[in-house]
Amino acid sequence: MPVGPSLNRDALASLHARITDWFAETARDLPWRDAGCSPWGVLVSEIMLQQTPVVRVLPVWQEWLSRWPNPAALAGEPAGEAVRLWGRLGYPRRALRLHAAAVAIVRDHGGTVPGTYTELLALPGVGSYTAAAVAAFAFGRRETVVDTNIRRVHARLISGVALPSPSLTASEMRLAAELLPDDDGASVHWNAAVMELGALVCTARVPKCAACPVRNSCAWIAAGEPPPSYIPKGQAWHGTDRQVRGAVMAVLRTAENPVPPEMFHQEPADLGFAPDGVAVPLSALHRLNCGPEQLDRALAGLLTDGLAELHQGGYRLPA
């Protein structure tokens, strides 16, 4: 829905003011929002926060920045160390992408995170959302930042539907661009504020409409809160290849030496020797009772994705 026919300049200015004022009063105190946070810290946070809640990201982000306070520090270590410190955040290929981005930043930008959307987009593993978010939040640039939370707020507030379409559309991007304040600083605050509103108030399942600063302007409420046109499908976990991959990765993160293939397929007691520092995650893997074919698929997939490698007849994190 274009802004012009339904929101005049005064109405849009009112939305800007009410949402950013709400954000100024209620925003969570997150370290990557601190004025002293480096662009590298912002980039790391944006990669970690993809499909992962803040409560899980925060301790890993802090440990990561303590060990690798700049791209050069990470680029100087093996990619496997990035995967190891990634821990249980999930989707560990993001750790490989961050390592690759750090290497590219050192090689192509003298170790300094580039500040424009185009330069950021050229980094390994950085997509259009991340490039826009880092350009905005780390460098104060006017960029159209559109994540799941922002899409949901726009869908309800302006378009009057319960949920945005399953995939990002060109019309959503146009709407987000039309809603963006003209001033650079105001646009950064607007992006952050709408994202926070979606994360804390305009949530997917049970929105807290009574706490919303713009509820009297919400097209979805005015329409009688119609139900969504589709039911979002959650991702299965128990019994899936993803669960087995995660359990194998837990073993590799703990292991000090390459893990022999037979250790994945047999209980340690049956092997006749004690595992090298991997007793707990190895026991957790065996408790899944996955079949040998599923386990072999997980191991092969980790090799293909670069999350593991064969060395001296065993599996280890990439060097």
Rank of each mutant, 00 (worst) to 15 (best):
M48W: 15
Y230M: 09
I47H: 02
E309T: 06
T144N: 01
G306I: 04
V153E: 08
R297F: 02
M48Y: 00
T26P: 12
S38N: 04
G198K: 00
A255S: 00
M249P: 12
W32T: 05
V83Q: 04
T144K: 10
E77K: 10
D108H: 10
C218W: 01
Q62H: 07
G36L: 13
G272K: 04
P318V: 12
P213G: 00
C290P: 11
A250N: 15
T20E: 08
Q266F: 10
L175A: 09
S283E: 15
D147K: 09
A279T: 10
A176W: 11
G306Q: 00
G291N: 11
D305E: 14
G239K: 08
F137V: 02
A274P: 09
A35H: 14
G291K: 14
W68H: 02
A193V: 02
W22Y: 03
V161C: 11
R33L: 11
N191I: 01
V153T: 04
E293M: 13
E63S: 06
G4A: 10
E267G: 04
L163P: 03
M263S: 11
A138N: 03
A73T: 10
R141H: 08
R156L: 07
A13K: 06
P258L: 03
P5R: 04
I231V: 15
V251Q: 02
D183Q: 03
L200E: 10
E172Q: 09
S6W: 11
T116M: 13
E267Q: 15
G125A: 12
L285A: 04
A11N: 09
P78H: 13
M173H: 07
G110A: 12
A132Q: 07
W40T: 15
A132I: 02
D296W: 03
I19D: 01
G160K: 00
G314N: 08
V145Q: 06
T169E: 14
Q235H: 07
V251D: 05
R297N: 11
F23V: 07
V60F: 00
R28V: 11
D108G: 11
A11S: 14
R297L: 09
T169F: 08
E119D: 15
R156I: 00
G90W: 07
H99M: 02
G87R: 00
F23S: 05
L317Y: 01
D21M: 06
A308C: 13
P2I: 03
A279C: 01
Q50E: 03
G224C: 07
A24F: 03
I158W: 03
A247Q: 10
S229K: 12
S66Q: 14
P59L: 02
P260R: 06
C218Y: 04
L282F: 03
E25T: 02
W22R: 05
G224E: 05
L168N: 10
P71D: 06
L12H: 13
M263E: 15
R174K: 12
V106Q: 00
A298G: 08
V146I: 06
L295H: 04
Y315V: 02
A101G: 09
L30W: 10
T148D: 12
V259A: 11
A102H: 08
E225T: 15
E267Y: 01
L85V: 13
G41R: 05
G76S: 07
L74Q: 02
A236H: 12
P71F: 01
R152M: 01
D182G: 14
A101N: 12
M48V: 13
R297M: 06
F264Y: 10
S217Y: 06
T148S: 08
P281R: 00
A204P: 05
E172W: 01
V60N: 13
